[in-house]
Design a binder for these strands. Structure first.
Length: 561
RNA sequence: GCCCUGGUAGUUCAAUGGAUAGAACAGCUCCGUCCUAAGGAGAAAAUGUGGGUUCGAUUCCUGCUCGGGGCACCA
């Protein structure tokens, strides 16, 4: 529709022999201003030096002459906006479309036939999977789903740091705790061991020496006892992560490990002396020459740093996943600056790969109660956090005297968490507002889920009463919820372009809010009402839209709650 | 010090240079014979600060200020 209007306006400009400027077609902030509006008169007026309102009049006349069935009314308002009000026919057609294209609603072809790799989550084995990992996973999954909606063949990737100082710290901590490969231990003990090691490395010089030595042993696998402890700890960690992915609703297609990327990265750096130079015993990339900062790729010990590994990772992705069109790396924004350096270095040795790599640095979450650090062991494990929210959901159900259903409580808890994570821009730091997430009201995941479940209930009643969906009898007026509903595909596409899942979240809340108003003012499944079939079809379309939109956010829509 | 970021109701978030800056939560008023009140209706409440560009600035430029991240051997 947007494109249609753009054409209509362009035609008008042509016949008036006015210059074609870059104008926008958008939805006015207020629904009373119409369904679409354009600032074309304001833009062109500037160019030709005419009064914008007069110009708007002329353009409007030309638009009206084209006589489109979808347009009911064109008007001029404010400084010279041209507002379009869409016709009854248009809205009815949209409902019909939504209810018939089954599974295709909301999709777009922006990445049709393209292969897109999305790397996200990247938890480090031996560390606790905390709510920061949960946050980054939720963001990455949602980005992946936006690409799926655009028709892309999406491969979900997970890159895990199974070697490096943090692992050495954890192993050191395990040794201190007296753990061996035969001991029984889980992720909690590993988290504790890591905190112990990391603290010691920071405060105690000899411990730091030990850990450095341990790090080398892990790399070259020269100590059998260390190997066993390492292998066991790694396995325990990875298994635990799989449990978390299942809970979060993510399934990865490919896994990559630093232990593989290390040697390859090292070779890669050494093979390009024209890019990486010696400095102080290390191999560095002199980023200053490119307006960036210098980073070490191979340290004085001769070991590859994260930078070198990341370089190899790009090659490994291509080898493992085949040629692709885009490779997205989603991480917290604390490494934004570093990634710029990395991409610059990559562009010098692998211009093709660098060009299709996109780093999306999202903001960090903080809890209202304060911040976390896995170094000090002061973290909130994702599992504990999810369980606590689930408990709130269960209590809520019990309070209302409804049937207690473990599965639904879990859905609602995850809905609350994911919505709270994605309701704002991913690029900004945010505070995870527990109060807000736990309220389950208003601007929340459960509010959307509730609206969906409510519609299922209406449908159930309609079936009992013998009301079928249908668009034969059409209401005279256009319901506000219809004026929101048809915008969904535009929103999805825009959300992808901006890498902003929150646009979907904001839209869904507006849709649900309009539907709930409609619901409370109109009786839907009423046999005596000749409009019942239409209202039911509309409700059905809203449910379909909610379900698909929630899916983009990674949230399940329960049939009842 | 240098480089990135950000500062919007009491709180958590919205707003491709446009119309009266939108929501939600908290507090205040209402709505219960009715398809799920995890709902609906209403009132009140905000652009850190000084300049500049523009017909028009929360948005762009800039000074100040306050916060977050980064600045070679962690990731």
């Amino acid at each position: 529709m947007k494109d249609t209007l753009k054409n209509v306006v362009n035609n008008a400009l042509k016949s008036l022999e006015l210059p074609v400027e870059d104008f926008v077609i958008e939805h006015p902030a207020l629904m009373s201003h119409g369904d679409y509006a354009t600032n074309v008169a304001l833009v062109v007026a500037k160019e030709v030096g005419q009064n914008p309102r007069e110009l708007a009049e002329k353009i409007m006349k030309e638009v009206v002459l084209q006589d489109l069935p979808e347009i009911n009314q064109v008007s001029i308002a404010g400084p010279g906006f041209i507002n379009f009000t869409l016709s009854r026919t248009f809205f009815t057609k949209q409902i019909k479309l939504i209810n018939t294209i089954d599974g295709e609603w909301g999709k777009n072809g922006a990445y049709l036939g393209k292969k897109v790799l999305v790397e996200y989550t990247d938890p480090n084995p031996f560390k606790e999977f905390h709510i920061g990992h949960m946050f980054t996973n939720i963001v990455g999954e949602s980005l992946s789903r936006l690409f799926v909606m655009a028709g892309a063949d999406v491969k979900r990737l997970n890159y895990q740091g199974d070697v490096g100082m943090h692992v050495a710290s954890a192993i050191w901590g395990m040794q201190q705790m007296g753990l061996t490969a035969d001991s029984q231990f889980g992720p909690r003990e590993l988290g504790e061991a890591y905190a112990k090691g990391a603290t010691a490395a920071k405060n105690n010089e000899s411990a730091k020496q030990d850990i450095t030595t341990l790090n080398k042993k892990i790399y070259d696998r020269s100590d059998e006892a260390v190997n066993q402890l390492y292998d066991k700890g790694r396995a325990v960690s990875l298994e635990y992560f799989e449990d978390m992915y299942a809970i979060l609703g993510t399934k990865f297609d490919h896994y990559f490990f630093e232990s593989e990327a290390g040697p390859k990265g090292q070779d890669l750096v050494l093979a390009h002396p024209e890019v990486f130079v010696d400095s102080d015993g290390a191999k560095i990339f002199p980023g200053e020459q490119h307006g960036l900062h210098t980073r070490v790729f191979i340290n004085r010990e001769g070991l590859p740093t994260y930078e070198a590994k990341e370089l190899a990772l790009a090659e490994m992705k291509e080898d493992e996943c085949g040629t692709h069109d885009l490779s997205v790396v989603s991480t917290a924004n604390e490494i934004n600056e570093y990634f710029k350096v990395l991409l610059k270095a990559m562009s010098l040795i692998h211009p093709d790969l660098a060009q299709k790599t996109e780093h999306i640095g999202h903001g960090m979450v903080r809890l209202t109660s304060g911040k976390m650090s896995s170094r000090t062991g002061d973290v909130i494990p994702a599992r504990d956090f999810i369980d606590s929210i689930k408990l709130v959901a269960l209590n809520k159900v019990e309070e209302s005297g409804r049937e207690v259903d473990e599965q639904t409580a879990k859905m609602v808890a995850m809905g609350a968490i994911k919505y709270e994570t994605l309701r704002g821009s991913i690029f900004q730091d945010s505070v995870f507002d527990e109060g807000n997430a736990l309220s389950f009201e208003g601007n929340s995941g459960p509010y959307l889920q509730y609206t969906y479940a409510r519609i299922q209930s209406v449908k159930e009643k309609a079936e009992k009463e013998g009301v079928a969906t249908g668009l034969e009898v059409i209401p005279k007026d256009i319901y506000d919820v219809e004026r929101v509903l048809y915008r969904f595909p535009e929103v999805v596409e825009e959300a992808l372009v901006d890498r902003s899942p929150h646009k979907v979240a904001v839209f869904l809340t507006e849709l649900a809010s309009e539907f709930n108003a409609f619901y409370s003012h109109e009786k839907i499944a009423d046999v005596g009402d000749e409009l019942a079939s239409y209202k039911l079809a509309l409700s059905d379309a809203v449910a379909e839209t909610l379900k698909t939109g929630l899916w983009i956010l990674g949230i399940d829509a329960p049939e009842r709650m």
